[in-house]
Simulated scan of single mutants.
Amino acid sequence: MRTMDMPPVYEQPGSLILPLEIRLDKRLCPEVIDCIDDGLSVYSSAYRYAFSRIDHGQRNLNQLTKDLQYKYGLKSRAANSIARDAKARHQAGLELARVQAKNLRASILRKKKRLKKLKKTVEEKSREAAAGRLGHHELSHYRRQKHDLWRLGQLIPRLEAKLKRWKKDIENRHV
């Protein structure tokens, strides 16, 4: 006999919360499914609106909550929940952007160091290649190094431009 997986139980002072999953058959209860779809579409529209307003600089959550209530016909509790959730996700997105910018900056520094080292190696190999002192294997390795040098020369400016855009977005608090 197969045992059913029990959902995790969450304890809060004075109560237990059990997650519940319901599967509805579209043929048996289309009205309920339509009602849920309508509710989710209103929620997602309100959430996108709230996130956009926060991303464009609105700081006052009380005013945003009132706007959501008026525009989408939500109760104050639902509108407040949406506004706070949007603000929290916006903050998380900003923090992620800061971490990614830091990692990109470190990556650019590593690539610049590699470029400098590779330039020195290619210059030495080019003198040997011009004198005809490289074997077949060394010559193909030299060509690969030249290609890597060219590729890094193309990549580093693109990454620097990307970092510049990210810094501007972080300063403007855009996610």
Rank of each mutant, 00 (worst) to 15 (best):
A130K: 15
K119F: 07
S140G: 09
H136D: 10
N62G: 12
K87V: 03
Y70S: 07
Y142L: 06
R143W: 08
W150A: 14
A106L: 09
G73A: 05
R77Q: 15
N103G: 02
A97H: 07
H56S: 15
A92E: 13
I54N: 00
R77G: 03
I54T: 00
R89C: 00
N103M: 14
H56D: 09
S107V: 00
H90Y: 02
P157V: 10
S76G: 08
E128V: 06
L64C: 05
S81A: 11
V99W: 02
K87E: 14
A106W: 01
Y142N: 05
A50W: 01
R114C: 03
R105F: 13
P157N: 07
K125D: 12
K113C: 06
K125A: 08
R143T: 05
P157L: 07
I108A: 05
A50G: 02
G57R: 13
R98W: 03
K87F: 07
R48T: 05
S126G: 02
V122K: 02
F51E: 03
E128T: 09
N60V: 04
S52T: 07
H90K: 04
D148A: 15
L149Q: 10
N103K: 11
E138Q: 15
A130N: 13
L109G: 07
L64N: 03
H141N: 08
N60W: 02
R144Q: 14
R114M: 08
Q58W: 03
R110F: 09
G153D: 07
T121Q: 11
R143L: 12
L74T: 04
S81E: 14
Q58H: 03
G93I: 02
Y70G: 09
S52G: 09
S52Y: 12
E128P: 01
D55P: 03
Y142G: 13
H137V: 15
L64I: 13
K113L: 11
Q145M: 14
S107Q: 06
Q91L: 14
V99E: 14
L68N: 00
S140V: 12
G132Q: 04
E124Y: 12
Y70L: 14
H141W: 06
H136K: 13
Y49A: 11
Y47S: 02
N80W: 08
A83M: 00
L104I: 00
L96N: 10
Y142T: 04
A106K: 06
Q100L: 14
I54L: 04
K111W: 03
K117N: 13
L68P: 04
L109F: 05
I54D: 01
H147A: 12
Y142Q: 07
T65Y: 03
V122E: 00
T121D: 13
L155W: 04
A78E: 14
Q69L: 01
S52A: 15
V99A: 13
R151V: 10
K146M: 12
W150R: 10
K66W: 05
L64S: 02
K66Y: 08
